[in-house]
Simulated scan of single mutants.
Amino acid sequence: MESGILELYVLGEVNPSEKHQVEEMALQHPAIKAELDAIEKSMELYAVFNAIEPSDNLRDKVLNSLVTNLGDDRTFKPRTTHATEKQEAKVIELAQQKSINFYKYAFAACLALLILSVATLFAIYNKLENVNSQLVTMELQTQKFSNRVNLMDHQLHIFRDPSFKIIKLDGTPKSPKSALAVAWSPSKQQVMIDLSRMKLPANDDQHSYQLWALVDGKPIDLGVFNATNDSTGMIQMKSIDRAQAFAVTLEPRGGQPTPTMDNLMLVGKTE
């Protein structure tokens, strides 16, 4: 269907073998028969739209000749000689060939225009895809910036709230360079840790850091957190209304009910 043989078949420009092949395929495949019908209709419409109206003199001459011949065919003998008939036949044949060539050129021009249109649409589609990707990237960046602003606003709110105490946890001999700031509001029973100012070795996938509150000499679990290179912002831990100290230990991932004192990393008193 894309080889161009169907158009040549409609134009009568195929040899007997090709003609037989097209007709066999049309009988076997309805899609090919439908394509042939569509091509024939397109050719007919093109011929109708480009038909040339004969002049009035030529129309009158033909009509008068028909009336005369109908009156008495024996009265008038053909005026054209054998040589003239051959010449006229040749002229008609050349005109038909010219028409066929015109259809070929018209079809080729339409095909070229179609290919150009498809290429243009494909280029426009690629540009739209690039624009959409850029818009998605900008939207993600905007959302990330908005989240960052909201987080900073929340941090400022905590530091401005007089009910919060900032408890500094210092490193133990296990990790002397470690440090962590804990924001604690006894009245609101809220505990926050500042990851942006945290100094702890990054934990692996099998371990987590666990925050503890020392209440009357007993450790109370306040939840687990991770230390990574991109840790930022403040996270809220479990609630508590009183504590004499806070501490951080390194525990198996998910935390433990009691702290592992051999892995005590940070400690800081509330008073």
Results as ranks from 00 to 15, higher is better:
residue 88 E to G: 05
residue 117 S to M: 09
residue 90 K to R: 07
residue 133 S to D: 03
residue 92 I to K: 06
residue 91 V to N: 13
residue 108 A to E: 10
residue 93 E to F: 10
residue 94 L to R: 09
residue 136 V to Q: 13
residue 108 A to L: 02
residue 71 G to K: 15
residue 127 K to Q: 06
residue 104 K to A: 04
residue 93 E to H: 01
residue 109 A to I: 01
residue 60 D to Q: 04
residue 119 A to E: 03
residue 119 A to K: 05
residue 114 L to F: 06
residue 122 F to Y: 12
residue 102 F to R: 12
residue 144 K to T: 14
residue 85 E to G: 01
residue 79 R to N: 14
residue 133 S to T: 02
residue 86 K to I: 06
residue 60 D to P: 00
residue 118 V to P: 00
residue 57 N to V: 01
residue 52 I to P: 08
residue 130 N to P: 00
residue 127 K to T: 09
residue 54 P to N: 10
residue 76 F to G: 08
residue 140 L to Q: 09
residue 86 K to A: 09
residue 60 D to T: 05
residue 56 D to P: 02
residue 108 A to N: 07
residue 104 K to R: 12
residue 105 Y to S: 08
residue 83 A to S: 14
residue 108 A to D: 02
residue 101 N to P: 02
residue 100 I to N: 03
residue 108 A to T: 00
residue 98 K to E: 06
residue 79 R to H: 07
residue 92 I to C: 05
residue 53 E to K: 08
residue 103 Y to R: 01
residue 108 A to S: 07
residue 138 M to L: 14
residue 137 T to N: 11
residue 144 K to E: 13
residue 133 S to E: 04
residue 133 S to F: 01
residue 119 A to T: 09
residue 66 L to P: 03
residue 120 T to W: 10
residue 63 L to H: 01
residue 68 T to R: 12
residue 81 T to Q: 11
residue 53 E to D: 06
residue 65 S to K: 04
residue 108 A to M: 02
residue 94 L to K: 08
residue 78 P to I: 05
residue 68 T to W: 15
residue 56 D to I: 03
residue 107 F to I: 03
residue 139 E to C: 06
residue 114 L to S: 12
residue 65 S to W: 08
residue 109 A to Y: 00
residue 127 K to C: 09
residue 129 E to G: 09
residue 55 S to P: 03
residue 141 Q to V: 11
